[in-house]
Amino acid sequence: MSIARERILASVRRSLRRAGPLPESVREVLDRRLDAPAPNLKPALDDDPVSHFVHKADAVHARISRVSTLAEVSGVVLRHIEEHGLGESIVAAPGLEGVQWSNRLAVERRAARGSDQISVTGAFAGIAETGSVMLLSGPESPTTLNFLPEDHVVVLRESRIVPHLEDAWAMLREERGSMPRTVNLICGPSKTGDVELVILEGAHGPRRLHVIVVRE
């Protein structure tokens, strides 16, 4: 253990008027607080989570497409490409399953490179309160796909939309058990206000965020 570490902890304890670490009884209370985290106040939402998500994501300039099945995803991606005059090669997250890609599209499954135009990824959850999507890093979902390409298309199942961030944390604990290297909460496209406070999209991350909400 470093000298600085001991010095800082000692200084903290001195300031808190304690001679040493917390007594065991207090530690146990704090351990419980950490081991069974409880949500604090969750703001009320005025409509159902899916509608709320769509409304909020739209408000932050995410493009929203709503489809019934995964079979329609490929078509939405093609229309996105046509609308913005983009090339027909895409990078898909290795873990994105169940999508039948049109043979017009050249699909690679890997992490992103600087030259990639479009990525298509899944999402672990959608957060209705803010219209954000939550993505977890892993072999099936490389983080670079969320930031390097110009266009990021996210496939989100309606069943994965939860009212609040706290609900997504509960889901994460239950389904994964531990934290992945990276959790990304993404709310609209990349933006900046650093030139005269004019808000512009496409600063360093994706210029366009397109969320395809799948009903099935």
Partner: peptide, 24 residues
């Protein structure tokens, strides 16, 4: 900070890349 309900990116980093990760 900015009058936003949420910032565009909130990112949690927990350690280095994991086994099998393609980036990080």
């Amino acid at each position: 900070a900015t009058g936003q309900e949420a910032s565009a990116y909130t990112t949690l980093s927990s350690g280095p890349r994991r086994a099998g990760d393609l980036d990080g």
